[in-house]
């Protein structure tokens, strides 16, 4: 269980995050939405212990989050890979670091589900497209069956069809392996379709948070409403409604 208890994060003189609290159980999905600069990436960094907390506490099963070897899908997909190494090396890194045996069947399944041709992995990061790099980032995050996965805009560079396939793969794996997922996304449709809960982050604070269904049917804040209307206007929610 991920427990985020009243945290604040300061960057420079201003608080980028203020008094954030929530919990996330294994097997569950929390989607964090909010406008650009709201502090979504900072929240992920805080959960992973990559920035210092000025207040509050974050634990996984009452221990520091890093102990459970959480996985991260980065917002900028290419920067997640060492430019000097093949993608294969980078993808296998979590297995090597944890001294885990690789499971070829699982690798094949992940590659198929993410629509990655195996020879793609023999290339360097600069030799694949951003969308490919993004999916390889997902592959790398999931390869060592982590208990907690943080996705920072995992589908932003993908086309609609690949988005759908990738989202389904993540959901399937989650059902089988029971990891907790925190997904930052701009895509309210995706959030509504796959998340158990949705949190709206606004200027560093949680403006609204609740079960995904409630959120879509009856948003509590003006911001949530705007977001919902915008999503409807784009037709993103049709498959939910």
């Amino acid at each position: 269980m991920l427990t985020v208890d009243g945290i604040s994060v300061a960057r420079g003189r201003t608080d980028v995050l203020r008094d954030i609290s929530f919990t996330l159980a294994p097997g569950r999905t929390l989607a964090v939405v909010g406008e650009s600069g709201a502090g979504k990436s900072t929240l992920i960094a805080a959960v992973l212990g990559l920035v210092a907390l000025s207040k509050g506490d974050i634990t996984w099963m009452n221990r520091p989050v890093r102990h459970c070897r959480p996985a991260l899908v980065m917002q900028e997909p290419r920067s997640a890979f060492n430019p000097a190494l093949t993608l294969h090396r980078s993808v296998m890194e979590p297995l090597r670091a944890g001294r885990l045996p690789g499971d070829p069947v699982r690798l094949t399944r992940l590659c198929d589900g993410l629509e990655l041709l195996p020879d793609l992995l023999e290339r360097r990061p600069s030799e694949v497209s951003i969308g490919q790099a993004q999916r390889i980032g997902i592959l790398r995050a999931l390869i060592a069956t982590p208990p907690l996965v943080l996705f920072d805009e995992p589908l932003s560079a993908l086309d609609a069809v690949t988005q759908k396939h990738t989202a389904r793969l993540i959901a399937d794996l989650q059902r089988e392996e029971g990891f907790a997922a925190l997904i930052v996304t701009h895509d309210l449709g995706y959030a509504a379709a796959y998340a158990d809960e949705i949190a709206v982050l606004q200027a560093g604070q949680i403006a609204e948070m609740g079960p995904a269904q409630d959120f879509v049917t009856s948003p509590k804040t003006a911001y949530g409403l705007t977001l919902r209307e915008a999503a409807f206007a784009l037709g993103a929610l049709e498959h939910v409604a």
């Binding site: 070897r69 991260l72 900028e76 920067s79 190494l85 980078s90 979590p94 670091a97």
Partner: peptide, 26 residues
Amino acid sequence: TRGYVVQAKLAGLSPLAIARWHYLPA
């Protein structure tokens, strides 16, 4: 603060291995 070093640390790679695989080539 480079992405791939953050990733390596999250994966629990030892400092020595991080130095060998990520620092030395750069």
